[in-house]
Design a binder for these strands. Sequence first.
DNA 1: CTACATCCTCTAGCGACTAGAGGTGCAAGA
DNA 2: TCTTGCACCTCTAGTCGCTAGAGGATGTAG
Lengths: 140, 140
Amino acid sequence: MKKITIGEAASQSGVKVPTVRYYESIGLLVAPSRSEGNQRSFEPADISRLAFIRHARELGFEIEAIRTLLTLQDDPHQSCASADAIAKARLVEVEQRIRSLMALKAELETMVEGCGHGRVDQCRVIEVLADHGQCRHSHH
Amino acid sequence: MKKITIGEAASQSGVKVPTVRYYESIGLLVAPSRSEGNQRSFEPADISRLAFIRHARELGFEIEAIRTLLTLQDDPHQSCASADAIAKARLVEVEQRIRSLMALKAELETMVEGCGHGRVDQCRVIEVLADHGQCRHSHH
DNA sequence: CTACATCCTCTAGCGACTAGAGGTGCAAGA
DNA sequence: TCTTGCACCTCTAGTCGCTAGAGGATGTAG
């Protein structure tokens, strides 16, 4: 077996070197074997696992959710109901976040459009911030 | 003058009590006078300031941006160009975040729809996570 | 053999709070 | 007046998911 250094594992998976060590430290990655000089020696499966983690992080899953997803992946005979539930929960979160950000966007646009670029005492940005009652959406 | 306790200031501004103390500790709020028994005694202007901060935080402005906005508010004769720039920058951030979340949403929907609710080895959720190449959008 | 990149561990820091310990102040009811 | 009990005080440490830096060891190319 060829030895994969942490640097190679990092560049191949797209996870940074300190982050790889961090994932090992929190038990998301099984501690790899070491070389004579105490350097980590990864295997191809570790790189897949790192790529999995990275992708899940990019999709906004939390570390604990990823931990669950990884244990599911490790035992392919289990029902995928948990994986499904985690993904669905994440979808709901994302949808809520989008709605909330759309409301924010509308608010910010009003602020920016209304700004006459004059002095602060006529500035709509400051004014709206100071008075929530001027918002069109009350629930952000 | 009537004395406003931290609890009243908190409930009237919608900022939590420990958060009010936190804002004072980082200098976002001028330290209020104290009662004989060393308890904070706020004034109405402090409540407006807290409400301003809260509103700005809800709109996603960072503390340092809020610090700038507050100094602008304190001096109404200044140009509001800075306030305008801060709000515009925040608007751009929000727009980017929305685009990114829309891509995520699409990805998550594909995952969830494709899940046959069977066993993990056929689960599309796990499969897509393991292989970024299956994504429709490469740039999340 | 000498550079120099990469690796190692460990601690501390980021932002914006939040939680808890351990103690004091104050107002209202018995 | 006393007591109950909530609200207040300070201080430290924890949250999440890394990231940065110190100070030293290892590995490789010329």
